[in-house]
């Protein structure tokens, strides 16, 4: 069965055809659209490595059937910031060494962007920890991740007074 959807992917609206209703958003991105920045860690919604924004909200691409996405807006790590620039969350991850191997990092960053947009955590380290608990980091860079989300939140909400590094987490 051949399917076609119109998707606004990283800001560009395009018609996307694929051959199989079984295709998930994750496999569509990785295997059909040459966007391998989104990672497969468990393929079952249990690790968060495949987190992308769908209509501005963080979600696991591995449990999203591509066919359901007609008209949706999808943002992946490749489209988070214009070429040659970094989103404040990306910069904060570098500043706070919020990753080691880097494999879960695209998912962590997209999840952090989603969390900040949700507006529930603010810079409270405990709420950030809870809010980021859907993203497993086996290198266990959690200490830096919490600091990075604090820093990015500050710079996005109060860009003028943003401290370079976060509070003690």
């Amino acid at each position: 069965m051949s399917l076609s959807i119109t998707l606004t992917l990283n800001g560009v609206t395009r018609a996307i055809a694929f051959e199989d209703a079984r295709v998930t958003l994750l496999d569509l991105l990785r295997d059909r659209l040459d966007l391998p920045g989104t990672k497969k860690g468990c393929d079952r919604g249990q690790c968060g490595a495949c987190t992308v924004l769908v209509n501005g909200r963080r979600t696991t691409a591995c449990l999203t059937l591509a066919a359901t996405l007609e008209g949706a807006e999808v943002t992946t790590i490749e489209g988070l910031a214009p070429e040659g620039t970094l989103h404040p969350v990306q910069q904060a991850f570098i500043d706070n060494d919020a990753f080691q191997c880097g494999y879960c990092t695209p998912g962590q960053i997209m999840s952090a962007v989603g969390l900040i947009a949700e507006g529930r955590a603010g810079t409270d380290p405990e709420r950030i920890r809870e809010g980021m608990s859907g993203n497993i980091c086996r290198c266990a860079a959690y200490h830096g991740i919490t600091l990075a989300v604090q820093q990015a939140t500050r710079s996005m909400v109060h860009p003028d007074t943003a401290a370079k590094t976060g509070d003690a987490a």
Binding site: G45, G48, T51, R57, R58, T59, T60, L63, T64, S111, G114, L115, E118, G131, M132, S133, G134, N135
Partner: peptide, 9 residues
């Protein structure tokens, strides 16, 4: 329950 990502879906 679950995670922020899953609760959004």
């Amino acid at each position: 329950g679950a995670s922020g990502q899953l609760r959004n879906a």
